[in-house]
Simulated assay, not measured.
Amino acid sequence: MPMVTVSISPLQAAGIRAAVDTGTYASSSEVVREALRMWDAARRRSDVCDVPQAANDETLKGSRCVADMFADYEAEQHSHN
């Protein structure tokens, strides 16, 4: 599998560690792969926008950005606990 290096915030890193520590995911790689699958599925449904393009494109008004999608997902996860 190809490897990619990315930079994330300390808060994001803590969230990934917590997901692994609680047993929700087996590894940090699994967390990131799931996030990318969600992002890709949302893009295919046109649920997420390309932020720079959306700022200038009225047709994308109301489209959701990746941060919105993840916030919804986190809220849903917390509501089940």
Results as ranks from 00 to 15, higher is better:
Met1Ser: 10
Met1Val: 05
Pro2Arg: 10
Pro2Lys: 11
Val4Lys: 11
Thr5Ser: 14
Val6Trp: 03
Ser7Glu: 13
Ser7Lys: 14
Ser7Gln: 13
Ile8Trp: 02
Ile8Glu: 01
Ile8Thr: 03
Ser9Ile: 02
Pro10Phe: 03
Ala13Thr: 02
Ala13Tyr: 02
Ala13Ile: 03
Gly15Pro: 00
Val20Met: 08
Val20Ile: 09
Asp21Cys: 00
Thr22Val: 10
Thr22Tyr: 05
Gly23Trp: 03
Gly23Tyr: 03
Thr24Ser: 04
Tyr25Pro: 01
Ala26Thr: 07
Ser27His: 12
Ser27Tyr: 09
Ser28Gln: 15
Ser28Lys: 14
Ser28Glu: 15
Ser28Leu: 05
Ser29Asn: 14
Ser29Glu: 13
Ser29Pro: 06
Ser29Gln: 13
Ser29Thr: 14
Val31Ala: 04
Val31Leu: 08
Val32Lys: 11
Val32Ala: 13
Val32Gln: 12
Val32Arg: 13
Val32Trp: 07
Glu34Val: 06
Glu34Gln: 09
Glu34Tyr: 06
Ala35Pro: 04
Ala35Phe: 05
Arg37Glu: 10
Arg37His: 06
Arg37Asp: 08
Met38Gln: 11
Met38Arg: 12
Trp39Arg: 09
Trp39Leu: 13
Asp40Ile: 03
Asp40Cys: 01
Ala41Leu: 07
Ala41Lys: 08
Ala41Thr: 08
Ala42His: 01
Ala42Met: 05
Ala42Thr: 02
Ala42Asp: 03
Arg43Lys: 06
Arg43Asn: 01
Arg43Tyr: 04
Arg43Ser: 02
Arg43Thr: 00
Arg44Ser: 00
Arg45Asp: 08
Arg45Asn: 05
Asp47Ile: 02
Val48Asn: 01
Val48Met: 01
Cys49Lys: 03
Asp50Ala: 14
Val51Ala: 14
Pro52Gln: 09
Pro52Gly: 15
Gln53Leu: 15
Ala54Asp: 14
Ala54Phe: 05
Ala54Glu: 13
Ala54Val: 06
Ala54Asn: 11
Ala55Cys: 15
Asn56Trp: 14
Asn56Pro: 06
Asp57Ile: 08
Asp57Ser: 08
Glu58Phe: 12
Thr59Arg: 15
Leu60Thr: 14
Leu60Ala: 12
Ser63Trp: 07
Ser63Leu: 05
Ser63Cys: 13
Ser63Pro: 00
Cys65Val: 09
Cys65His: 13
Val66Ser: 10
Val66Trp: 09
Val66Thr: 12
Ala67Leu: 12
Asp68Phe: 07
Asp68Trp: 06
Met69Val: 13
Phe70Val: 07
Phe70Trp: 09
Phe70Ile: 13
Ala71Glu: 10
Ala71Gln: 11
Ala71Lys: 10
Asp72His: 04
Tyr73Pro: 01
Tyr73Arg: 11
Glu74Asn: 02
Ala75Thr: 05
Glu76Val: 04
Glu76Pro: 00
Glu76Ala: 11
Gln77Arg: 14
Gln77Lys: 11
Gln77Pro: 00
His78Gly: 03
His78Arg: 14
His78Lys: 10
Ser79Asn: 05
His80Thr: 09
Asn81Lys: 10
Asn81Ser: 11
